[in-house]
Amino acid sequence: MTEYIIKQLFAGAAVLFIVVSATFFLIQAAPGRLSILADPTLDPTVAANIERRLGLDQSAAVQYVRWMTRIGQGDLGNSLVFGRPVLTMILERLPATLLLGFAALLITVFVGIPSGIIAARWPNSPLDQGLSFLSVIGLATPNFWLGILLIILFSVTLGWLPGAGMQTIGQPFSVFDRLAYLVLPAIVLATSTTAELMRYTRSSWLEVINQDFVRSARSKGLSERVVHGKHIMKNALIPVLTILGLTLPRLVGGAAIIESLFSWPGIGSMAVNAAIGRDTTLILGTTIFVAIAVIVSNLFIDLLYGVLDPRIRFD
């Protein structure tokens, strides 16, 4: 077990190393110079000063080592546009993203898994066909478009739910108010992951149904309710956990578009604005931060997987 954890940690660190290196080469290979330096009205001595301060006058190898050391020390640099530390800016906006991501994850799990089980419980029934139709649609719908449609319906036409922001301006914080703002973006963010988890749960369930121990349970005279609720459930849901791990990066990635659409003040909309404003340090810092966060959470899911399923050998 300890060996397994160390191995996973090592693999995670290796991927991070590659991602951070990739970001460095991305900047190095970029065409032209930094946008602030490309300004023709800029005094050459000022430009040289900026270059020296940013270490751009050094060789690529020196810059690479510096870049890696700095990030290794947890320093993501300062935003080119705002001049503030990237890490501070991320931490300020992280709670909003966590709230949205957590809400979407709850929807994914509590809608995706039950509907997958229902579909597998009565395979090829009209219910199963209807659910599988929905999942095909859910996987093909651009989530931001669904967001636009829901805003048009619920905010513009019906006026039931707010379509932008995180709370009513000028009003004190209230849970109800926050939930009203949270509903639409969370549903939209969860659409494709819910559809995917449903599909996966269904096929995992159907695979277990054909196994010998299920036949034994049935031949003992156990009711379908007990067979499904106990015997199949335990075995079918464990692989579902892995897909949940793969869902995280998709939720986080999707948050970028959805936060922008709903003006949700999280790190996703910040990253999009940074990309539009060519704020290289801010966007790279956010990318690295998000990569670390997701890799670490996946490590936890891996461990949970091992605890839940003793058949898995940590080798």
Partner: peptide, 21 residues
């Protein structure tokens, strides 16, 4: 290992970075 590792990275942010640069 690299493939699985990259699957765990939210590549959308990486794409944003590429486009920004």
């Amino acid at each position: 290992r690299f493939t699985d590792g990259l699957l765990a990275v939210p590549v959308f942010f990486l794409l944003l970075a590429v486009v920004a640069i």
